[in-house]
Design a protein around this nucleic acid. Structure first.
Lengths: 193, 193
DNA sequence: GACTACATGTAATCGGTTACATGATTGG
DNA sequence: CCAATCATGTAACCGATTACATGTAGTC
């Protein structure tokens, strides 16, 4: 029997990354998510998800809970443990398996989250991930360009084809945007050394 | 008690849209997904998901199953019913609630799937959806530009800030790409009339 | 004979959403 | 005093993934 590998709970690392940046309560993790820009590219981190995940992280000894009274208010402040930092670093530095993905949004999201928490590992690790993303996106673009050519020739064969073409054009735009971003990012990361 | 509104099963409509284009088997829905470009921007449609969904669609009388023997092979060919076509049209023509979303990828994906199946409704419907996406993306960009300004000023205050900046820059690139695509698409849809 | 592609499903489980539940504090 | 915000959770359910299960047809 092959051991079952559960789909990674990425919200776990999203939360761990926030706690690496600062020690805060569950309620404030939600605010952090909402007000630091993470929400623009990462799926909703709701409180109903944050609290159980924190409980799980505590059981795994990746975070520590402390009851703190502040301005006559009691809240549970969570902070990352050494073990948690190491777990985060391992996850962030790991090359995401974007080669097995087709969906351009999925792969971009994955690399973006790891880039966002790039402070948890070395600039070199971040650079490598972005370089791979650039490469894969360029390959996707070649495939999309072929679709475009084919659809432009068969535009009038089926009422659906013009709409298929529109979605392919979006794919090409996304690929270009990601490659452009990647190249700009590589330059910025080099300057940081 | 407020009635529970289940999260829309979008794969249901993805499959319905494929069957509107052509009558095929579950196995071939998977191939369609893989080879028509849908995979570039829509999450994996696996066979383990396709079969139960087809069963559900059949129960709802949105599709019809027919056992067909072809080249000594028996397969279940599914075709869309009139009711299914109407259900698809209603879904495609509905304005997605992207204003309640923060995640730029989510909103783009949602509009893209509806654009992909634009043949199920009028060009006018597709245009309206894209116009709204352009507007929302422009708003997101304003927010991201503010983040960018702030992060550039505080770049050296925290080791994480350069990485936050990188993710914000990606957001800006995505926003620009989507707006550019939207404007190009509007022009193409106008020509189609 | 082994491998790939065709072809269809079920069972167990996980991750995430919706809904429910409770209570304190602050500001108008 | 009422609304918004602070603050933390549980229960039920749904959607999607992983794993399991089975069998045929064609090709190297």
């Amino acid at each position: 029997m092959v051991p079952r590998v559960a789909k990674e709970n990425k919200n776990k690392f999203a939360i761990l990354g926030i706690l690496k940046h600062e020690s805060i309560s569950g309620y404030n993790i939600r605010k952090y998510y909402k007000f630091r820009g993470l929400r623009f590219f990462w799926p909703d981190l709701s409180l109903n998800q944050i609290y159980p995940t924190l409980k799980q992280l505590e059981e795994e000894k990746l975070v520590k809970k402390k009851k703190i009274e502040e301005k006559s208010r009691i809240s549970n402040i969570y902070s990352i443990t050494e073990r948690g930092k190491e777990e985060l670093r391992k996850w962030v530095s790991g090359i995401p398996s974007i080669r097995e993905m087709d969906n351009m949004f999925d792969m971009t999201q994955e690399v973006l989250l790891k880039t966002y928490y790039g402070g948890a590992t070395t600039a070199e690790d971040s650079k490598n991930k972005i370089l791979e993303l650039i490469e894969v996106m360029k390959e996707k673009k070649v495939g999309l360009k072929n679709f475009e050519k084919h659809l432009k020739l068969t535009l009038k064969d089926h009422e659906d084809h013009p709409y298929f073409l529109l979605s392919v054009l979006m794919g090409i735009r996304i690929a270009d945007a990601v490659v452009g971003w990647g190249e700009e990012s590589i330059k910025m990361l080099k300057k940081m050394n």
